[in-house]
């Protein structure tokens, strides 16, 4: 397992007038091994850019991102990404989608079958292995995408608003399932979202970003409360009724609210 270190990350784009638009300014942040960190922030605070940098899909103009002490320069299977729009291969069945990364690694067929079967079971999706993505609901498609990323046992999981395209009920079910999965197989996870409750419920720490320019606002520690009150053993609605949860959620929400402008 590896950690993710963002060291003095800056990202600037030249603007038409010859000036500069600063998307991210001096963000320093570490996601420890096996830690689940959620990043929230208003739109334009650069949270997705941060994730894409860790994936190697985008590059900082200053500072550097290191995963497991090694500087990130290009995408690699040690950093699997779950995308908001699922990004399943429409021409591959559920089985082929989940096994994709393993095939890239040259894993033997038996190992592929075993891993696929295991995740189908974990995701309550047995019997769907020969379907194509368009034959699945949105929630099931995202389960497949999550399984595809978990299947290669990446050192780091990067999730870019993975539940953003799902309806409210499916979203809640998926949040519970992700908690179940991450507590069973903890991985270093960077989870991008704009949903405050989701961030507080899922993570060890919540990173709040500010915008114009995108920068670190505050880091809220959730883990001690979660462990002390045993959130992981409770249903999601029960957790969300707890005073401690409400308190943390409101705290994060206030950090975001003073940044929201009327045009949002």
């Amino acid at each position: 397992m590896k950690d993710i270190r963002f060291e003095g990350i800056g990202k600037a784009f030249p603007t038409r007038g010859g000036g500069q638009f600063v998307a991210l300014d001096d963000v320093t942040l570490t996601v420890a091994e096996r830690e689940f960190v959620a990043v929230v922030g208003p739109s334009g605070s650069g949270k997705t850019t941060l994730m894409r940098m860790a994936a190697g899909l985008d590059h900082p103009t200053s500072g550097q991102v290191a995963v497991g002490g090694k500087r990130v320069t290009a995408p690699g299977p040690d950093r699997a990404v779950v995308f908001q729009q699922f990004a399943l291969f429409p021409w591959k069945t559920v089985r082929e989608n989940i096994a994709f990364g393993l095939r890239c690694q040259g894993a033997p067929r038996a190992k592929q079958d075993e891993v696929v079967a295991r995740y189908l079971r974990l995701m309550n999706m047995e019997g769907t292995e020969d379907r194509y993505p368009h034959q699945l609901s949105g929630g099931m498609q995202q389960r497949v995408a999550i399984a595809r990323s978990y299947a290669i046992e990446p050192d780091v999981l990067l999730m870019d608003e993975p539940f953003g395209a799902l309806d409210a009920q499916t979203r809640t079910v998926m949040q519970e399932e992700l908690v179940r999965l991450t507590r069973r197989e903890p991985r270093t996870t960077l989870f991008i979202t704009h949903a405050v409750e989701e961030a507080v419920y899922l993570s060890d720490r919540v990173v709040v970003l500010a915008r114009d320019p995108g920068r670190l606002r505050e880091i809220v520690d959730i883990r001690p409360t979660r462990i002390a009150e045993g959130w992981d053993e409770m249903a999601i609605d029960a957790v969300m009724d707890l005073p401690s949860f409400t308190h943390l959620r409101t705290h994060v929400w206030r950090l975001l609210r003073d940044q929201i402008r009327p045009d949002d």
């Binding site: 299977p77 950093r79 990404v81 890239c104 290669i152």
Partner: peptide, 29 residues
């Protein structure tokens, strides 16, 4: 071809050959 699919293939370890045969060609078909 959907850029996100290409990104998804790369972050799951696809080399350029596999990218062509399993993502770009089916996507363009």
């Amino acid at each position: 071809v959907d850029r996100t699919l290409i990104a998804a293939a790369r972050v799951h370890g696809a080399g350029s050959r596999r990218l062509l045969t399993e993502v770009i060609i089916p996507g363009a078909l």
